[in-house]
Design a protein around this nucleic acid. Structure first.
Lengths: 144, 144
DNA sequence: GTAATTGCAAAGGATTTGCTCTGGT
DNA sequence: ACCAGAGCAAATCCTTTGCAATTAC
């Protein structure tokens, strides 16, 4: 039931023709573990000398995400960020709404619980996000 | 330490002049417990016969969010959604990446744990989001 | 009276679409 | 040769900005 042993070729969207662009994009995604926007990837590939267009990147990322090959989320600025998906991902943060200070947190037993709930609902390829937002001490006092 | 007993007037952004528009917006927000986009609110107010512009709504929402009066998040479509903040809010979902089916889930003891972590880190006005994404049975089979 | 506020029109930034050209098979 | 795929240009959609008219205090 493990799908993470895929090689780069599984990241070729559409599944019809293996073009130079698809390969370059797949490699870029596969070599990073963090979320990147289409623009980020475009810039990276271009600076590496790759010949690829922004439109192609947008459409490929969209396809890959629709196929479930990529996880995605919206950034604060409105960009869609993509990342290859692993079976279980962690995103445990305590974030201040004011200064955006972020503290890593660890909910005891959450991983296990998440897997269990997923199984009970017949879901696979699970990924989860937990975020607690609030006001830190400093920002709270600035408000008065 | 409770800030939730505020009346509608605390939702007047800027804090300088109480205009008809600010009041209408504040009331709209205060009367709803769910996330709404600027466009949603604009449509609602207009249909209620209120005389207010989209620009005003955008700027007010931005101000209120910056002041920590509102919680906000990005929707799948790219809109920023706003909601008045309560001390603790719930967003516990199991979502299918394929068909977007959403199932409500309830992490045992999570509320308590969240409050405790926040307190330990001197955070207040806590709000949290938990989302588990995966592929439901149906969508999983469609992929093969 | 005067500075805060409104809101139109236009600008911006991310993403999508129309459509033609290119290149994989 | 055929058709999936690339990518330019233009269009869309949400949001922000510039700024003149309005209005709360």
């Amino acid at each position: 039931m493990n799908t993470s042993a895929k090689n780069t070729h599984n990241l070729l969207a559409g599944g019809e023709r293996a073009t130079k662009q698809k390969k370059a994009l797949a490699e870029m995604i596969d070599s990073s573990d963090s979320f990147q926007s289409a623009q980020d990837i475009f810039a990276s590939l271009r600076s590496k000398g790759e010949n690829i267009g922004l439109t192609t990147i947008y459409s490929q990322l969209k396809l890959l995400a629709a196929q479930g090959e990529l996880d995605y989320m919206k950034s604060e600025s409105g960009e869609t960020l993509y990342r290859k998906c692993s079976t279980v991902q962690h995103h445990h943060h305590l974030v201040c709404r004011g200064c955006k200070t972020t503290i890593e947190i660890e909910p005891p037993g959450f991983e296990e619980w998440a897997e269990k709930v997923a199984r009970e609902n017949h879901f696979s390829d699970i990924s989860h996000v937990i975020e607690i937002t609030g006001l830190c001490e400093k920002c709270l006092s600035h408000r008065n």
